[in-house]
Design a protein around this nucleic acid. Structure first.
Lengths: 212, 212
DNA sequence: ACCTGAACACCGTTCAAGT
DNA sequence: ACCTGAACACCGTTCAAGT
C-alpha cells in the first residue's frame, strides 16, 4: 500500500472529522490508511508535524477573493470571518490550529494580509501585529469553545443553573438563557464588531454609538 | 501514606510548575506523592476532574479587592488583569484553564463580577455575557501563547524570518521585530485596551482617539 | 475508609529487516 | 524508497484484595 504525504494528510483530516481531536491517534490513522503503525513516520517525522500540516491545510484560501478596495474595517471583518470558517471546516479544527506553530504559506498569507490591511489604515507595524494577535486570539478562542460545545454529549454539560445561587450570582442568573452552547452566529459577530469598533475609534474613524 | 484531596491538589499544582502540562501525568503525580498509581482515583474520579479542580484553585481571589466605585472600564480592566495574573501563577496555567468546564465558586465569581460590571454600565444581560466571553477569550488566548512561548526551547522556535519572502510578505517583514516571543506586558495591555475602548464607544462614553 | 498490586487497553516513536 | 513487525517506554483507568 504505497502512500503519499497527501494521502496521509487527507486521511488524517477525514479521521479528525470522524473521531475528533481526542481520538485522533497515529495508530488509528495507520489502520484507517490500511498500513502498519510505523508507516506514517516515513512521511511525517512526528504527530506534531502532521498536526501542523493539517492546520496549514485548513487555512487554504483564507485570503482569496478579498476586496482590497473596500474600507479597511470591512477587509478585516471579512478575513476574520474567513479564518473562522476555515477553523470550522473540520471537527475540532480550532484546537488543532491553536496547538501548532507553522510558518507555512497559508498561515503566512493570513498574517501578511491582516498586517497589510492595518498598515494601510495607518497603523505602525508594531500596533498592526499586536492588533492582528488580538483578533486572532478572539477568533480562535471563540471557535474552540463553539466546537467544544458541539462535541459535548447532552449529559456531559455541567449544570450551570444548579450551581448558581440567587444571592451570590444574580447577574449570571439574569443572563443564563444567553449563556450558550450552542453559539448563535451573532455571538461571533458581536465580539468581532466590538474589537473592530475599538479599532475604528483608535484610528480616528467616526463611529456611531449603537447604545450597546 | 494517608492523602487528602488538598494534598493531591497541591501536589498536582507543584508538579505542573515542575514539569509542565504535557508531562503532567497521573502516574508521575502518584509517584511524587509517594503513593501507587490507583491511589489518587479514590479522591478524584478522573484526570479531567483533577484538572478542573486545579483551574478552580488558580482562580482563588480573582475578584477580591475590586473597587466597585471606580468607573466600569477600570473595574473591567482590573478584573481582566487579575485573571491574567491567576493564569500565569502556574506554568501552563492558561492551558489547564482553557480545557476545563467548572461551575465552581471562583469561576462563578469571576463571571458574576464581570457580568455585573457591564450591567451596571447599562448593558443588557445578553450583551454583557457575550462581552465577557470576548474579554475572556482574549485573556486566555493571549496567556496560552505567552506561556507556550516561555516553554519553548531556543531551537524549537521555528524560524519565521527564514520562511518570509520579501515579495510575498513585506508587511510581516516590516513588523518582524515586534512579533514576539517573549511577550512584553504592553502587548497584553494593548489588546485589552482595544477591546475596552470598543466598549466605551458602544456604551456612549467619550473616547479620545490616540491615533493608533 | 483508603491504598496496593496488578491488570486492561491503549499511546507515540524507533528501527532492523524486508521488498 | 517505502513499509513491516516488533519492540520500548510510556499513558489513564479499574478493581479485587488487603489494612
Amino acid at each position: 500500500m504505497r502512500l503519499s504525504r497527501q494521502d496521509i494528510l487527507a486521511g488524517a483530516l477525514d479521521l479528525l472529522d470522524e473521531v475528533g481531536a481526542d481520538n485522533l491517534t497515529m495508530r488509528r490513522l495507520a489502520t484507517a490508511l490500511g498500513v502498519t503503525n510505523g508507516a506514517t513516520y516515513w512521511h511525517f517525522a512526528s504527530k506534531q508535524v502532521l498536526l501542523a500540516a493539517m492546520a496549514e491545510s485548513m487555512l487554504a484560501g483564507v485570503t482569496n477573493g478579498l476586496d482590497r478596495d473596500a474600507p479597511w474595517w470591512e477587509q478585516l471583518t471579512a478575513t476574520a470571518h474567513r479564518l473562522h470558517a476555515a477553523l470550522k471546516s473540520r471537527r475540532d479544527g480550532a484546537r488543532i490550529f491553536a496547538g501548532a506553530f507553522f510558518p507555512e504559506p497559508n498561515a503566512l498569507a493570513y498574517g501578511e494580509t491582516m498586517i497589510g490591511i492595518l498598515r494601510e489604515a495607518g497603523m505602525s507595524p508594531r500596533d498592526a501585529v499586536w492588533t492582528v494577535d488580538t483578533i486572532t486570539y478572539y477568533v480562535v478562542g471563540h471557535t474552540i469553545e463553539e466546537q467544544a460545545a458541539a462535541g459535548l454529549a447532552e449529559d456531559d454539560v455541567p449544570d450551570l443553573r444548579a450551581a448558581l445561587d440567587p444571592e451570590l450570582h444574580p447577574n449570571t442568573l439574569a443572563a443564563i438563557d444567553d449563556i450558550p452552547a450552542p453559539h448563535p452566529p451573532e455571538h461571533f459577530d458581536h465580539g468581532l464588531e466590538l474589537i473592530i469598533s475599538g479599532l475604528r475609534t483608535r484610528l480616528g474613524v467616526e463611529v456611531v454609538s449603537n447604545g450597546g
